[in-house]
Every structure is written in structure tokens, then in C-alpha cells.
Design a protein around this nucleic acid. Structure first.
Length: 280
DNA sequence: CAAAGCTCCTGACCGC
DNA sequence: TGCGGTCAGGAGCTTT
């Protein structure tokens, strides 16, 4: 479930504890997540400095000294729990599914917990990141300049798939997941089932600012949850945000002149929520 | 090549 | 109370 805004929020949340810090130790409590952890993962991280923490798509990137990067994905149930040094118990108590624990030289903890283990953590040389299998085919960031109407229209023209599938395709644009795509299409008044190649250029162009706005607002909402965590231990991962259609099957559409209800269908195996009257 | 289907995993939920 | 079945979903992989 963590989509771009949630990952961005996690990034901002862990920066105060980890960025610029040396890793006192890294504890790994199992040797695989969705894919195996790198050989001697925790040993290789001990003593290294996290120079910078960034995000690309739904991936968190910990840039280490020695031109190496920890690539981290939250999957759908992954979260990071923060524990300030002063709040630690002795001995530390870890929860079920706490898989990887980062301890900084100030002895603050960042705990990666992921029940379903759809997440992953791996290592990559800094200069090889763009060629990494996970990154090689990635599309542009939705909030960046390379993502614009012309670009998306060209991608849409080439596909007979539903527009929803196109927006979920990380090769087209990164960061969007099932929830935000439903919201974007609702706000754009476009049916998720509409074949991408049948969309007019104006319709495709219309989606760009909507995508940007929905993501930006969600990031802001995430930011305000961070403030609540500022003084206490907190869990960073999926946060509930107000959604207009997602998870609202059977509820009123809510558009002033519309008295229809939100429907739920399945598109490429994913739950899809939309208003049949407002979206076509 | 595109597109559809399968797969990993656990917790929540449902009906009996 | 417990048990089996179903569902959720990111994204790489396999099949069509």
C-alpha cells in the first residue's frame, strides 16, 4: 500500500535519525524478504555513514559512504518504526516481523517491519543504480518535469489496455499505486476501464495536474502526521488519507449533481472503485 | 512485442 | 473456539 506519498513521508521521518549518521550496527533477523538480503548484509553496513537519504519511485535509498546504496522497498505491508535512544528498553524488545534494525551512532533505532514480506532490501553501487534491474525500466517521477501531457499521451496512444493499467505501470510513470490511481481517475472524470488509446489528448493532459495535486496533497498530509510523531515513537508506513472513491463501494458518489453510488470492479486483478455516472 | 495471469506472504475477515 | 476459505496487493516473472 505504501505509494509515493507514503514512501516520501517515511523518508522524511527517518532523515532526522539516520541522515549523516554512522551506523553503529544493523541487525537482520531473517535472511530474506521478497528476495534474499545481500550476503553479510548487516556486517557490510556496520560502521558505514549514511550520507544522504533519497526516494526514487516507491524506493527508499540510503546513500552510504563508499559509493554504495541500500535500496529499500516497503512492499505493501512494510513500515518503519522509530525509537529514540532515550525511549529504548533494555534489553530491546522486537516485534514479530521486525526484520531489519538500523542503529545509529546516537543509538536511535529505525526498525523495518513487514508482515507480508513483499518488501525488499538490497545493496547497489551508486554508479550502477540506473542500470539495476529494479530501476532500469522505470518511468519518470510524476512530480518531475519529464512527466507531462505530451509524454503520457504518447504512452496512452500505444496501449490498448485500460487507462488504469497504464497509470499503474511503473515503466510509464512511477509512484502511483492502486489507491491513488482510483482517486486520480475519479477526479479526472475518466473511466478506469477506458482503453488508453481512445483517450483524447485533452483528457490525458487533464490528468497531469490532477496526479500532481493528489500526490502533493497526500505528501502534505503525511507531513502533518510526522509532526505528531516528532516527540514520540512512531510508525511510518501506510497512513490513511481521505479518499473519495477507494474503499467506498456502495457509498454516495458525493459529486453535487450526482446521486449515483461508488461501484467496485476488478481491473487486471485489482479492486477498482469509481463512479459510473461521473467517469466515462 | 503486448497483455494477461501467476506468484510471493500474512493478517483480517467470514461462515459454519 | 477453531478451522478452512477468500481476499488484499507491488511488481517481477511466466505464459499466451
Amino acid at each position: 500500500m505504501p505509494e509515493l506519498p507514503e514512501v516520501e513521508t517515511v523518508k522524511r521521518g527517518i532523515i532526522p535519525l539516520l541522515e549523516g549518521r554512522r551506523l553503529f550496527q544493523v541487525i537482520q533477523r531473517r535472511d530474506n524478504l521478497r528476495i534474499p538480503l545481500p550476503d553479510k548484509f548487516s556486517e557490510r553496513l556496520r560502521g558505514r555513514t549514511i550520507k544522504r537519504i533519497t526516494r526514487r519511485a516507491k524506493y527508499l535509498l540510503l546513500h552510504l559512504d563508499g559509493q554504495e546504496i541500500v535500496i529499500c522497498h516497503l512492499g505493501m505491508s512494510g513500515k518503519m518504526t522509530l525509537k529514540a535512544a532515550k525511549d529504548r528498553e533494555s534489553p530491546d524488545k522486537f516485534e514479530k516481523h521486525d526484520h531489519v534494525i538500523f542503529e545509529s551512532d546516537r543509538h536511535d533505532l529505525v526498525i523495518f517491519n513487514d508482515p507480508r514480506r513483499f518488501g525488499l532490501m538490497t545493496l547497489c553501487k551508486e554508479d550502477a543504480l540506473e542500470q539495476h534491474p529494479l530501476f532500469r525500466h522505470m518511468g519518470p517521477e510524476p512530480l518531475g518535469n519529464e512527466f507531462h501531457g505530451e509524454y503520457l499521451f504518447e504512452k496512452a496512444q500505444k496501449s490498448r489496455s485500460p487507462i488504469k493499467t497504464i497509470l499503474l505501470d511503473q515503466r510509464v510513470v512511477v509512484g502511483l499505486g492502486n489507491i491513488y490511481v482510483c482517486e486520480v481517475l475519479f477526479q479526472a472524470g475518466i473511466s478506469p476501464e477506458k482503453k488508453a488509446c481512445l483517450l483524447k489528448k485533452e483528457e490525458v493532459e487533464k490528468m497531469i495536474p490532477i496526479i500532481r495535486e493528489i500526490l502533493t496533497r497526500a505528501i502534505e498530509a503525511g507531513g502533518s502526521t510526522l509532526k505528531d510523531y516528532a516527540r514520540i515513537d512512531g510508525e511510518l508506513g501506510y497512513f490513511q488519507h481521505e479518499f473519495k472513491v477507494y474503499g467506498r463501494e456502495g457509498e454516495a458518489c458525493g459529486t453535487p449533481s450526482c446521486d449515483d453510488k461508488i461501484k467496485r470492479i476488478t481491473i487486471s486483478g485489482r479492486s477498482t472503485f469509481y463512479c459510473p455516472s461521473c467517469q466515462d
